Simulated scan of single mutants.
Amino acid sequence: MNRLLVLETIIQMKSFTKAAEVLGYTQSSVSQMVAGLEKEFGIQILRRSRTGVSLTAEGQAIYPYMVQTLRQYQALQERAASLKGLETGTVRIGAITSVSCYWLPDLFKKFKERYPNIEFVLQQGDYGMILDWLKRGEIDFGLMTAEYGEGFNKVVLHQTEMKAFLPSKHPLAKEDRIQIDELAADPFILVEGGGYSEPLAAFEKAGVQANVRYRIQDDYTIMAMVEAGLGVSILSELVDSRTDFDLVAKSIEPKVMRPVSIVYRDKATLPIASQYFIDFLVQHKQELR
């Protein structure tokens, strides 16, 4: 069924590359799965062009049946889940602030529409805290960066851009993009990462050192401090989507990215509810923006 899911995602995204990013596969493996489908049915299903990827005439003829098969399999999975005890259960998650605030409420709502008796326990923290909770078994899995935490399994959900947050009257506020080294001289307000920091890694890669004046865990406190002119910061683009603070958020050159991922020890040993919510997250990751 993975091959059918890959094909559906390619059609939706009109791109092999984007489909690979969404599903967490390499572009090579996506191409191989499509080639396997075409070999199995003996026809060319997809056509690549300058405008993207589209179905061939033969592909258009069989694609509805493929989608129907995929939906029937997904329905079968859901029914099997209920028989295995997903009528009730608790999903215990540790997540960074931006994910817990901007992604999880809607995802919880959609999952509970399917499984209304499932309960969620959410703990919000930095990378170090999430890893500690995982080691102690206090959570089933974490949602955090893939760049930190050795010895854990990780599934990337989304490559989130991190942006420079500046006071609205900052000299760089009118620039389209900001060079990372241009931020080094300003007082820097660092979001506490608990062992790893994308902004500090970006400064180090650029060969400059940030002038860190404050270390804060809460994104909203940081934005309030930026608005007050106490410094600049680098935060997830997610927090820029819902803010009334008088500040600006600008893309950084070179880009600073955070690969937000599901982090866990052994999926097979997790409670059934958590296993299915992990699958649910992967199935819906193309919706995460």
Results as ranks from 00 to 15, higher is better:
V22H: 07
G24Y: 11
T26Q: 01
T26C: 01
S31L: 11
M33F: 08
G36D: 10
G42P: 02
I45V: 09
I45S: 05
R50Q: 06
V53G: 02
S54C: 00
L55V: 02
A57H: 10
E58R: 06
A61S: 07
A61C: 07
P64M: 09
V67D: 00
T69S: 07
T69W: 02
R71W: 03
R71G: 02
Y73N: 03
Q74R: 15
A75Q: 15
A75S: 15
Q77V: 07
Q77F: 08
E78L: 13
R79A: 09
A80I: 11
A81I: 05
G85A: 06
L86Y: 14
G89W: 09
G89P: 02
V91I: 15
R92Y: 15
I96Y: 13
V99T: 15
V99D: 07
C101Q: 15
C101I: 15
Y102Q: 10
Y102C: 10
D106R: 15
L107F: 03
F108K: 12
K110D: 10
F111R: 05
E113Y: 09
R114W: 00
P116S: 00
N117I: 00
E119S: 13
L122P: 11
Q123G: 03
Q124S: 11
G125K: 04
D126W: 04
G128L: 06
M129C: 06
M129L: 03
M129W: 00
M129H: 02
I130P: 13
L131Q: 12
R136P: 00
I139S: 10
G142F: 14
M144Q: 11
T145R: 04
E147G: 05
E147I: 00
G149V: 09
G149L: 07
G149K: 10
E150K: 06
G151P: 03
G151M: 12
G151A: 12
F152L: 11
N153S: 14
N153E: 14
